[in-house]
Design a protein around this nucleic acid. Structure first.
Lengths: 347, 347
DNA sequence: GGATCCTGCTTAAACGTTTAAGCAGGATAG
DNA sequence: CTATCCTGCTTAAACGTTTAAGCAGGATCC
């Protein structure tokens, strides 16, 4: 910057003002400064700026478990939203316990992030950290800032299955400690309505008995009259699908299988998975917008007024993606080939 | 920091020296400074330090496509390795074309990262950027710094299938432009040996004809005598597995299906997928070690000697994970239930 | 025609570290 | 007893910005 100033015979402060458009600088000089800056390939030092202003222009992203298959979607959406808002994204993995989570948060704090978006570990609550925080969990969680409307997503899926004629459906979740999963299950039950018989299977419970990756006994459930298996995540849905297929039960002719999240492989398995998609881009935009708002309001260095972030619209609707794995129950007569998808039916 | 200095009646410089152990400070004073620092809850400003030293303590992570299901493993491993080395990790998604990739790199550069690890887009080469770079691709790629030994992984898998008695195997890849996939395929062919008949199926090619997510015609292949389907990624393997199962072909009794990468869901599908695992932790450690080495050597601000990083051990072995989806071909007689995994056979 | 205001710039301080250079006093050496 | 060295500290500058305050000169006003 001083090089530009010297080359133009003005002071560094003027260059700064010219580039930022803040002080009083004549239009012609602004133009000259711009030109010189471009000519010299000037790149402002964000470090110096951060030191002076107390803002690093970096957002932290805290994830419960980076290995989570949903993570790519989240990270991508947040990174994109942050980049658009002029922020960088520092990641922190709170793999393991809650202690790791607070430690990860502290690491980010030391690095001077301006704010952070946190996807909390199942069932944990975020204490008041020293900077603006956006929490992505589920609307029913107290500290939540923004998230998909998991309950309504469940309800949509429930209505879809009920409309197809299912009257006995098995709800499949990983563990009952997750707010997100509980909301989805609640929504499913509501959407299915009172006429439909429901049972919930928690994978963690059966694995506690029979070991990790054990069969879930779904074939027996199908024999017992269940015609739909509504998993609360695509991962579980995939598990159910392959287990059923393996047992010779045809999907969707005999039973339906549905998931949640629309993970990468969901469209390419056979039959392609009917699932519920979150609008991650919108969620990320809202989260980042809430953060930038709070950062703006908080002003530079003041450690006061740091708390959580409130947001108007905290729930964004989920979208039902109907593919091949859901259909009318016990339509045995069908040909053995599945109708081609003909694009994707989405509604 | 000046608060500590004032409280102890010494100068700020001395405090700095005491804490960093650099200058000449009496042991007792060091102790007192430490105590006071802890008492006051002193947290050094990494920003100021960065400004002074020219080192931000941040590494950039550039990924070809964050939505890639392998990404979580990579990100987690790098984040962990970086955290251990005292670095933060700034992510950048080079979603889309090569232009986005260089743009992402530039964003990181502006933020002053000390170095970056790049997982390049398929078939792109990384130009000389202005900081140390570690490239994770495949050993056969020129600029590669460290990566899994994909070729040898393929060879191991090939030997596994050959040993089981397969004599006609279909190799399944996504597209031929990926160095990684080509290496894996090459290794597979070598491992299978000259006695085994091979054919390679590129998914992108058949999708170009029949549309995204179309069936791959694997049942026909099975009829034609192929007894093993060796996919070059778990995603493709899953696609093959479900397509075959759907067509009533039993895995592994009739045909075997194998994958690569050991993605999260690979152990929980039925039958659990035999696959090839990378030692991401080690790869990340080596990559980060190479970077820190280069950063060390480059010294603070000098923009000279910035180029790529060389590493001694640039290939880390892959590990065969034998699960249920591979077996002796055409063992029709079997009971219809699969033997339980009995832990995981790994070798 | 003098007081006042506006314009366009400059000066200088500040952000929180690191680090080279300096300096006083005591120990050591010749 | 003087010259030299070592020890333990201090002083001061520097990193590259931002921004409050100041200041000269011209325009505006009454």
């Amino acid at each position: 910057m001083s090089a530009i100033a010297a080359a133009l015979g003005v002071s560094a402060a003027t260059v700064s003002n010219a580039l930022s458009g803040k002080g009083r600088v004549s239009p012609e000089l602004v133009e000259k400064v711009r030109a010189k800056a471009a000519e010299l390939g000037y790149v402002p030092s964000l470090t110096a700026r951060a030191l002076r202003t107390g803002r690093t222009g970096v957002l932290g992203l805290v994830l419960p478990d980076i290995a989570n298959p949903l993570f790519p979607q989240i990270a991508q959406a947040i990174e994109n939203a942050a980049a658009n808002a002029g922020f960088g994204v520092l990641i922190a993995d709170s793999r393991g316990d809650v202690g790791q989570q607070t430690e990860a948060i502290n690491r980010l704090l030391e690095r001077g992030v301006d704010g952070m978006v946190i996807v909390p570990r199942r069932g944990t609550r975020i204490a008041d950290v020293g900077c603006p925080v956006a929490v992505i969990d589920t609307p029913s969680t107290p500290g939540n800032t923004v998230s998909a409307d998991h309950w309504d997503g469940g309800a949509q899926m429930g209505r879809h299955l009920a409309a197809l004629g299912h009257r006995k459906v098995l709800l499949i979740g990983t563990g009952s400690s997750s707010n997100v999963q509980n909301d989805r299950i609640g929504g499913l039950k509501a959407g299915l309505g009172a006429d439909v018989e429901c049972e919930t299977l928690w994978i963690e419970k059966v694995e506690a008995l029979s070991g990790k990756g054990c069969p879930l006994g779904l074939a027996a459930k199908a024999k017992a009259g269940f015609t739909a298996f509504a998993a609360v995540s695509d991962l579980s849905a995939l598990r159910a699908l392959t287990e059923l297929q393996r047992a010779g039960i045809r999907v969707p002719e005999m039973v339906s299988v549905t998931g949640f999240d629309d993970l990468v492989w969901s469209p390419v398995v056979t039959p392609a998975l009917t699932t519920m998609r979150m609008d991650m881009a919108k969620i990320a935009d809202l989260a980042v917008a809430a953060l930038t708002g709070a950062i703006e309001a908080a002003g530079g260095n003041e450690p006061g007024m740091a708390g959580k972030v409130a947001s108007g619209r905290d729930r964004v609707p989920m979208q039902l993606v109907v593919r091949q794995s859901s259909g009318v129950p016990n339509s045995h007569a069908q040909t053995s080939t599945i109708k081609p998808t003909a694009g994707e039916l989405t509604r």
